[in-house]
Design a protein around this nucleic acid. Structure first.
Lengths: 234, 234
DNA sequence: TTTAAGATTTAGACTATACTAAATTTTGTG
DNA sequence: CACAAAATTTAGTATAGTCTAAATCTTAAA
């Protein structure tokens, strides 16, 4: 906190609307890909037009939630990231809760969580986390941020990048939210914690062939990039 | 459906915002008291100023959700009431769910439900109702509207009006949402399904004395009016 | 190194929901 | 039954978040 706060720019609870939370979450998630976060990408992600994004970026900058360089891109400030992580925590807790407590399947939970994440109280969040035994990962294998805004350790390679030495690997995470693809993956048994064998990988962008309980399956390279695996230990 | 629909006034899903739902619910609940529903009462209930209510009443009338007579009052149309009942159903299912599944106490659930009622999907509503065994009453004893918009049978007198013949009665419903009063009532054991004995009632607006498991308690007349009881059968 | 294409921002407008101050209608009292 | 008090509506304004069209900046290619 080296920057002086003035009356005009003070971030209050009221300023943090669901829309603001969505922008922060989008910036957070686009940043994960490594690229600088630009207006166009945010517009696509949030389903609004670029001028709308520009207007909101100014607001967020005024609230000290992002650092905004016109024409160049944005990044979250410390407090912006805290809020993004809170929302992500809500999202992933809700997803897991719907699966564990109410019998939802993993392809159904995203849309529901996308809404509810903005509206559960601290108390409800705590009860849910408690019920679930303070879990570290959601049904997709995504890490659930801790209450203090730190992330649980996650080390994994994507299935696409993993050197294909006919090795057995464990699926730890599936970074996809498309219900149809998720249903397909469930069907073939490719879900977090399952074990698969990498059989062959075409060079460049060709498909990757894996084996799941005796069945061989060719996976699109793009899809393989969304699947995180780790080497079996022991 | 005798009134012709025109393009301008068509009610769409999008028109039904959380704010609209709150107005419909408020009209529904104020109507229960018998009085015609006026602008001032709505303003108090919804925590907005009267001109704000007037503006919204015009909108609701345009959407065919209410019948609005300027200066005289409003009532819900059939479709307005359907929406109000859906929201009430959500509210009460959520309250009961929080108590049954997540260990909330009855004084904690109202505020949480007040928000979430607007945001749960049909699917989540169904799973919750299912989990609870399609209940007919929430933790306050309030009836939960059915999916088709009908209300389960509820016959009861208020504790204030019940003829005090030293009779044993069963508490069926507590129409109060104030957390402090609800905690007090829990403390003395006055909750839905408990049995109490009416010992004495002062005339007019004096207190009513009741007995709960050997303890005599004087209850404010106004509070007694919020407590619904029925005669013990058998 | 100029310039055209692409990305971004500015300008101006719209909708939903809220407000205050002023005008109007209803109601209750004498 | 007249008129003051109370309730309600009208008029005009504000804010959050969105849009389209036009202007401007950045970048990549000739």
């Amino acid at each position: 906190m080296t920057v002086a706060e003035n009356e005009i720019n003070k971030t209050t609870k009221q300023n943090i609307t669901p829309v603001v939370e969505d922008y922060l979450k989008a910036i957070y998630s686009l940043r994960q890909t490594g690229e600088t976060v630009r207006t166009a990408a945010l517009a696509v992600r949030l389903n609004v037009k670029p001028p709308t994004v520009t207007a909101m970026l100014k607001t967020l900058a005024d609230l000290n939630l992002i650092r905004y360089e016109p024409y160049r891109g944005v990044e979250l400030t410390e407090s912006g990231e805290q809020i993004a992580l809170e929302v992500v925590r809500h999202h992933r807790l809700i997803e897991l809760y719907l699966v564990e407590a109410l019998g939802f399947s993993w392809d159904e939970v995203h849309d529901e969580a996308e809404v509810l994440e903005h509206f559960i109280s601290e108390k409800l969040e705590a009860r849910i986390a408690d019920y679930l035994g303070n879990p570290t990962h959601d049904p997709h294998g995504d890490p659930i941020p801790n209450l203090d805004g730190t992330l649980p350790e996650t080390t994994a390679n994507t299935l696409a990048d993993f050197s294909p030495a006919a090795r057995e690997v464990r699926v730890v995470r599936v970074r996809d939210q498309n219900p149809d693809r998720l249903r397909y993956l469930s069907e073939i048994g490719l879900v977090p914690q399952s074990t698969i064998k990498i059989v062959a990988a075409e060079p460049f962008d060709g498909p990757i062939t894996i084996q799941i309980s005796k069945k061989k399956i060719a996976l699109d390279r793009q899809l393989a990039r969304l699947i995180l695996v780790e080497e079996m230990k022991g």
